[in-house]
Structure formats: structure tokens, C-alpha cells
Design a protein around this nucleic acid. Structure first.
Ligand SMILES: [Zn+2]
Ligand SMILES: [Zn+2]
Ligand SMILES: [Zn+2]
Ligand SMILES: [Zn+2]
Lengths: 143, 143
DNA sequence: GGGCTTGCTGAGACTGAGTATCATCATCGC
DNA sequence: GCGATGATGATACTCAGTCTCAGCAAGCCC
């Protein structure tokens, strides 16, 4: 799907080392259309023949999350998952049936946030919005 | 803060049993201005002299969450927490400094959701919005 | 009040995510 | 190539949350 190169460029840009493990993780993530858990990624790593320690996998995910190319999600089930995404501000629409995820660029929140700030006195600094639904493909399959 | 009675009424309304344990948990939650984790609640239970098993505590929290009088949050840190809240649709503004939480009634999302649905083809069924910032009290303390 | 049914509780064992440690290894700038 | 430093991974560990199952009590009907 997306190219793993941008992951590597981000590493270099931040002065971090480009290791075989990080390259492998980047390649696997780049090929993912939807969200995935650490456990799933771990299985894929094994299937692909790489040998990467669990700790390293967690570290790589956290690292890519900090670099903004991966985002950590909290699924309604309570599980933690990750999605590959662009570093710009955006939100995700997540399919409840197949897990496919689409980024929504731009965000209609600023007005809403201004209103809430005025009403509550809070200085709103960050927000988090996730939309859940059924993707077009699944809708066809159900119909 | 809020009254624990509504918790009990909800239990009765759903045909569930009103036990000492549930009453104690309800009373503790009702006295909470902000969010709290299960571990914190557990400590408070002990301090209050009640003897409630951990499993029961988890069950009570899940139950109250289903009844809509408590909501489960995922803090930016990755921790899970709970807040006491009204059963109607709303969102939370959460203070990053002290954890104090305010409900925001009403929700400016419908338009945004319609737009996203049109743009992505998803049938959006659920959403989740959390706002994080600094509450008025903390702003004063910092200034 | 006194049974009865059924839902609720809790001790304890268990699972599984995520973290800490630290000796060893590999990257990359020189 | 060398060396400083950052990255890795085996292992042990912590801690949230779940499961089980025998015993208990809420609420109902008399
Ligand atoms: Zn789908
Ligand atoms: Zn936004
Ligand atoms: Zn505050
Ligand atoms: Zn809403």
C-alpha cells in the first residue's frame, strides 16, 4: 500500500539508527490497509522469517508513533491497536466489521472546540476523535 | 458531588440486584469529581473499610458502564479510567493536570459525520470524542 | 417470618500485554 | 576500519483483567 521509505526517512531525519529490525517492521506496517495489534504484527514478523524480539517490536511501534507515521488507537473492545497514517492532523474512520481504516484529512473541530472552551473555561489543547462504522466493501457484502 | 441514588435506581430499573458491594461502589464513584482507575477505586474501597473482591469491582464498573452512568476512558497515557456521567449522549473535557472532568452536553458532530460519510462511503454508526486541556482551576494555579 | 430460586460474590489461579535489565551487537560518523 | 553510542533480545517480572466455582444473599412468593 504505502511505501516504507517514508518511515526510514523519518528515522534518518530524527538522527535515529536505521536497523534491519526497524526496516522490517516498517515494511510490514506499510503493507497494512487497516489497524493491527502488536500481537498480530508479531505473528507476521515470524511468518516473514524475521527474528525480532517482542521488546523491540513494542519499541519500534512506540517510536513510529512518536514520529507520527503510526497512530495508536483504542478500539471499542478495549484493545490497543495501531494504524499507519500521515503525520498531519487528521482522524480515522474505522470499520467495525473488517477493521479497514480510512484517514479523514482536515477536521471540523475548531469551532466546536472554541465553543466548548467558552462554555467550560477549559483551555483545550488536544482532542481525539474516532469514528466507527461500516465500510463500503462490507456494506456490499452484507446487502 | 452527585448522588449515588440514581445508580441504585438504575439497577432496580434493570431488574438487577442491589447488593452492599454495589451500593458501596456507587457511593465512592458518586463522590468523584474526575476520572479514576480501577486501582485507585480499589484503594479507596479498602480505606473506606469495605471488603470487596477485585473481580466484583471490575464487574461493578462494567455494569455501571453498561447502564450508562459511568463511562470508560482511554487516557492519552494508555491507561484505562472511568468517569461518572449522565446516560445521554455527550462528551468529556478532561484536565491534563488534575484529571477533573466536565461533561459537554450536546454534540456538534452530526454535520461533520454526514460529511465524512459522504466523502468515505462509510456508514458511521458510533463516534468517540475526547477533549483534553487545562481546567480553570489549574490555569489559575499555574498563572 | 421462612423458604427457594437465582443472581452475586470472592479466593485464587491464570492469561497476556507491556516493561525492566543488562550483556552483547551493529550503525554510522570519523 | 574504529570506536562511541544507540539498538537489540533473552529473560524475568509486573500488573490489568478474566475465569472458575463453591458458597452466599436479594428478592419474591407464601
Ligand atoms: Zn469493512
Ligand atoms: Zn481534529
Ligand atoms: Zn485541572
Ligand atoms: Zn457526539
Amino acid at each position: 500500500m504505502t511505501n516504507a521509505t517514508s518511515f526510514i526517512e523519518r528515522l534518518e531525519g530524527a538522527g535515529l539508527r536505521v536497523t534491519d529490525q526497524r526496516r522490517a517492521v516498517a515494511a510490514l506496517i506499510a503493507g497494512h490497509p487497516g489497524h493491527f495489534t502488536e500481537a498480530e504484527l508479531e505473528r507476521e514478523v515470524q511468518r516473514s522469517g524475521s527474528r525480532i524480539g517482542r521488546a523491540t517490536l513494542f519499541r519500534a511501534l512506540e517510536l513510529f508513533a512518536q514520529l507520527g507515521v503510526v497512530e495508536r488507537l483504542d478500539l471499542p473492545s478495549g484493545e490497543h491497536a495501531y494504524v499507519r497514517c500521515e503525520p498531519s492532523h487528521h482522524h480515522h474512520v474505522i470499520c467495525l466489521r473488517c477493521g479497514r481504516t480510512v484517514e479523514v484529512e482536515g477536521c471540523g473541530m475548531p469551532e466546536l472546540i472554541r465553543e466548548v472552551a467558552a462554555r467550560t473555561g477549559f483551555q483545550v489543547e488536544r482532542h481525539r476523535l474516532e469514528l466507527y462504522g461500516i465500510c463500503p466493501t462490507c456494506r456490499e457484502e452484507i446487502a
